[in-house]
């Protein structure tokens, strides 16, 4: 939608139009072409749907946290807090580079903007790399979707609360990671559009919206991280417990 709003179509160009009221005063008619505010509003509305999606998942998570508090704390304590924390900082810096990129673009520094977008992509890849290390480690500890520990009725089965915790953990961090991948795709596309001069300092709605998207991905992590990694931190187990 970001794309639509500024990419004027040769056959469909906006002809400035004026409506005249009874006193003879003139009023500009807003067209859909080149509507910066409309593009921004549209993208924010799209992000609200993401908020509702993750909101619903957090609702499911909280539902089971209420039913199985102790199991959730034990399961949470077994996650690797330092890797999660490292990723938090990585995303934090990537949000900064993305924001600075937009700032540079708006002030005419296209080259600097592109550099910042590449940095953001790099940080996003680091995030995914750490995620992969984490999931691999968990897999080797026998905790992964489909493994015995997360099935019911065998000797490795974990209690219900922990099965649900890890089920939601893989679902939510997985979907978040999926958003990171989409984000990398969007940034690559943005670079292509900048090179094609379709995104310029004066026509930056696409850049603006992708920066918003990246902030949203960061925002979701801001809640995902403490909910999975930190709630068990104050538990009797104390400190960092690696695996099992």
């Amino acid at each position: 939608m970001a794309h639509d709003s500024h990419d004027a179509h040769d056959s469909h160009v906006y002809v400035p139009e004026i409506a005249v009221d009874r006193e003879g005063k003139e009023h500009v008619v807003q067209g859909w072409q080149g509507d910066y505010e409309g593009g921004k509003l549209g993208f924010w509305l799209f992000m609200l749907t993401e908020v509702m999606m993750f909101g619903a998942m957090f609702l499911a998570l909280t539902y089971y946290y209420t039913l199985h508090q102790q199991d959730f704390l034990i399961a949470s304590a077994s996650l690797n807090r330092w890797l999660g924390g490292f990723n938090t900082v990585v995303l934090l810096f990537s949000a900064l580079t993305m924001g600075l990129g937009l700032l540079k673009m708006r002030h005419g520094d296209v080259k600097g903007a592109k550099l910042m977008i590449w940095t953001t992509i790099l940080l996003a890849l680091v995030f995914l790399g750490v995620k992969a290390v984490e999931w691999t480690a968990e897999y080797h500890h026998g905790i992964f979707l489909g493994l015995d520990a997360l099935q019911s009725g065998n000797e490795h089965s974990k209690p219900f609360g922990q099965i649900l915790f890890f089920g939601m953990y893989f679902t939510m961090t997985g979907l978040h990671g999926f958003h990171i991948i989409i984000g990398i795709g969007l940034m690559l596309w943005l670079l292509k559009r900048i090179n094609a001069q379709k995104v310029t300092p004066d026509h930056n709605i696409l850049h603006f919206n992708i920066a918003l998207y990246w902030d949203l991905v960061h925002l979701i992590w801001v809640f995902v991280f403490p909910y999975f990694y930190m709630i068990g931190a104050g538990d009797i187990a104390g400190g960092v417990v690696h695996g099992h």
Binding site: A60, Y63, Y64, L67, H68, L145, G146, L150, Q151, S152, G153, P159, F160, G161, I163, L164, G167, M168, F170, T171
Partner: peptide, 13 residues
């Protein structure tokens, strides 16, 4: 993947 969320045999409601 059997994440368990709606499956009563894994504690899902």
């Amino acid at each position: 993947f059997g994440i368990g969320i709606f499956d009563p045999s894994k504690g899902g409601d």
